[in-house]
């Protein structure tokens, strides 16, 4: 199990390869990456995304999610990487990887972690456009998504 909160970029392909390599316990590995989408921003196109977080609480909150997912779906392993700071369009913001004996558990655990990272890990996104900035508002459907767990 590993949780990394970092400003530096990460190599999604290399992380996935390293996570999946040499396993004998897991029959299923699921990986997901969140990428900065070219959404409209103040003044037209998105120039960058600035991600703020709460150092300390971020790591604690993610560790608690990982512990719950591991117990609930019997994960063999799990990796969460989430970036903060300034990110350009097309860069990976975060990734989740889960390994379980069977795929249903690996998929469910990854979706659970995604839903919780979105609404219960203390990160906040600011859109930087050509003519200003705007904090991204939380969406009611993201909050509602937690109900299914």
């Amino acid at each position: 199990m590993a949780v990394r909160v970092q400003a530096a970029p990460f190599d999604f392909g290399a992380e996935c390869g390293a996570f999946a390599a040499g396993r004998r316990d897991a029959g299923a590995v699921v990986t997901f990456a969140g990428v900065v989408r070219d959404d409209p921003a103040p003044g037209g196109a998105l120039v960058a995304l600035e991600i703020e977080h709460y150092p300390g609480m971020t790591e604690r909150a993610i560790a608690a999610m990982v512990a719950e997912a591991t117990a609930r779906w019997g994960l063999c392993d799990c990796l969460v990487i989430h970036r903060h700071g300034r990110l350009a369009v097309g860069e990976a913001i975060m990734m989740v990887a889960t390994a379980a004996p069977h795929r249903a558990d690996a998929f469910a655990a990854a979706e659970f972690l995604m839903d919780y990272l979105k609404s219960r890990a203390p990160f906040w996104k600011k859109e930087i456009g050509a003519e200003g900035t705007a904090w991204v508002a939380a969406r009611a459907e993201d909050e509602a998504a937690l109900d299914r767990w």
Binding site: G34, H53, Y54, M57, H82, I93, M94, M114, L117, K118, S119, R120, A121, P122, F123, W124, K125, W135, V136, A137, A138, E143
Partner: peptide, 10 residues
């Protein structure tokens, strides 16, 4: 004690 808006991670 920390105050913040609803989170927007992921």
């Amino acid at each position: 004690v920390a105050f913040f808006p609803p989170m927007t991670g992921g």
